Simulated assay, not measured.
Amino acid sequence: MQYNAFRSEMDQVSRLGFGAMGLGGSFGTHDEKELIHSVLNCLEQGVNFIDTARAYGDSERILGKALKEWTGEKPFIASKVQSLGPGSIGWGTHIPVESAYPAGWLRQCTELSLETLGVDVIDLMQLHQYWPQWDQKDYWMEELLRLKEEGKIRYIGISIPDQRHDIALSIVQSGKIDAVQTVFNIFDPLPLDCLIPFCEEHNVAFLARCVMDEGGLAGFLTEHTQFADSDYRKTYFDYVPRRMYIERVERLLKFIPAYADNLAELALKFVLHHPAVTTALVSMHVPAYANQNIAALDKAPLPDEIFDELRKYHRWVRNFYDTKFWI
């Protein structure tokens, strides 16, 4: 396992992080004991960064059960405050911060997360929804800083709603946050243009999510793949004709096996190529896939020229979240 400093050398976090959205059933139903085992399996192999959220169904509760069984060194736990509002309100378009996080809600949500996880402190607490207009109000940051002073959280971060990476540039430069989480993958390398360099310059941790583009970049998708109504990906891949998505993925096969054993490994190598990417968050609730991803970190990195080729000629910037936020 490879490790990076999270803000300081005191906190060494694994470059591969356990994305815990799958623990809450977003990507299909799994037995709870199997999910607990999936967490322990990754911890045993050196994964020590786990990212969950209040909005991920039973994720925090199941993670809390796994942590009770874990006898090794405490992992770095990140969670997110659930924003208020029905459905997708505030995700596709800006809403006032008072609507998403009214006074007192950040504390209430954080204390509920602490109780559910069964821990005394959450290492990184993130806003699950963020808009730069909110920087004009101070109360929500002050509330997080008080939680930090009380020892209930250690670091403060934001999670960007979708692929609008530029909305985080001002707050990254402000020095007010410790981490930013956003979409970053082969199809969407835009954070490399500004956000990642800004994070590197200001010593802000960069957390990459959707590394596999909800699994699409791993090559599992076919024209006949079906998703349950409860599956987060139900409408995700049909933002464009599915054949178009599959053809884009098939273009990546030219790099297999010369530079990666499989597409998932290629996707992971691409995201981790830049040293300022602190952690790549991947759903690892299925041990077989998790083991494959963990093994990828021991493989040779992508040559610079292959990384550049992927970045320049395989980018496909589109917002698949539109099907959830606008339609």
Rank of each mutant, 00 (worst) to 15 (best):
A103F: 14
G118T: 12
S99E: 15
W140N: 05
K137E: 14
S79P: 08
L63H: 07
L106N: 02
I122K: 04
E111I: 14
M125V: 15
D120W: 04
Q133S: 14
Q82Y: 06
E73S: 11
W131G: 09
V81G: 05
L117R: 02
L63I: 08
Y139H: 05
W70G: 00
K137D: 13
G118C: 11
W91T: 05
V119A: 07
W134Y: 08
T116G: 06
L114M: 11
T93S: 13
S88W: 15
P96S: 08
I95K: 11
I77Y: 01
K65A: 10
E69G: 07
F76I: 00
W91D: 02
P102K: 04
G92T: 04
P75I: 01
L67K: 03
R61I: 10
W105A: 09
V81L: 09
F76C: 00
E60S: 03
E60G: 01
E98N: 12
G104F: 09
K68Q: 12
A66W: 02
D120L: 12
W91M: 13
Y101S: 05
P102N: 01
K74R: 13
P96E: 09
E69A: 08
D135R: 14
A66M: 05
F76Y: 01
A103E: 15
K68E: 09
W131K: 07
E73K: 12
